[in-house]
């Protein structure tokens, strides 16, 4: 089926792959980028858009620091190629607060001191937001299991669970009202 072959195939073998025009929708804003196909979503955020709130702790899916929401679902940005994230609605930690008003989970992270160094924190919060909206924040035990993809080497787990519980209570009361 040679007719189905995409134009890229025409490129001479061995030549440097062309940059791709990629359009990423992040926190409600469209960003047009010219990217090396190898660029991960995380590196596009950090190195190209200077949205450094999403952190890199491994680049291999093993720590959770890069967690962002894609079409409302939590994913690891380091395991996504940026070009394949085109057309998706991406939300990062920078897009969570409403202006000056922190998201309830951000506020409860401060209140509960749910971090030390703060480096895993963006990922914990984004994962926590999803954990609550998925309905997996019903008990501390549930939260622990459903947050286990986010390592905290400072060991703030106990406080993170408390912060998620607090925010879950807020969101269920606001949803009720």
């Amino acid at each position: 089926m040679p007719g189905a072959i995409s134009p890229a195939l025409a490129q001479a073998a061995g030549a440097a792959p062309a940059l791709l025009d990629v359009s990423l929708r992040i926190n409600g804003t469209e960003h047009r980028l010219s990217l090396d196909p190898r660029t991960t979503l995380l590196d596009a955020l950090r190195e190209h858009l200077h949205l450094t709130g999403s952190k890199k702790g491994c680049g291999l899916g093993q720590c959770g620091a890069c967690t962002v929401l894609m079409d409302g679902m939590r994913v690891k940005a380091c395991l996504s190629l940026a070009a394949l994230a085109q057309g998706r609605e991406i939300k990062t930690i920078e897009g969570l607060a409403q202006g000056d008003e922190l998201h309830p989970l951000q506020a409860s992270f401060i209140e509960r001191d749910a971090f030390q160094c703060g480096y895993c924190t963006s990922g914990q919060i984004m994962a926590g937001v999803a954990c609550i909206s998925e309905g997996h924040a019903g008990s501390p035990q549930d939260i622990r299991e459903w947050m286990s993809g986010n390592l905290c080497r400072c060991g703030a787990y106990d406080h993170i669970v408390a912060a998620i519980q607090d925010a879950a209570a807020v969101s269920s009361s606001t949803q009720g009202g």
Binding site: T52, A97, L102, I110, D113, I125
Partner: peptide, 20 residues
């Protein structure tokens, strides 16, 4: 509460690799 808490929970705290 941590005085740098807000920076950390909003992703605005800049770690070494993050300076422009």
């Amino acid at each position: 509460s941590r005085v740098d808490g807000r920076l950390k929970v909003t992703g605005a705290a800049t770690y070494a690799a993050e300076f422009e």
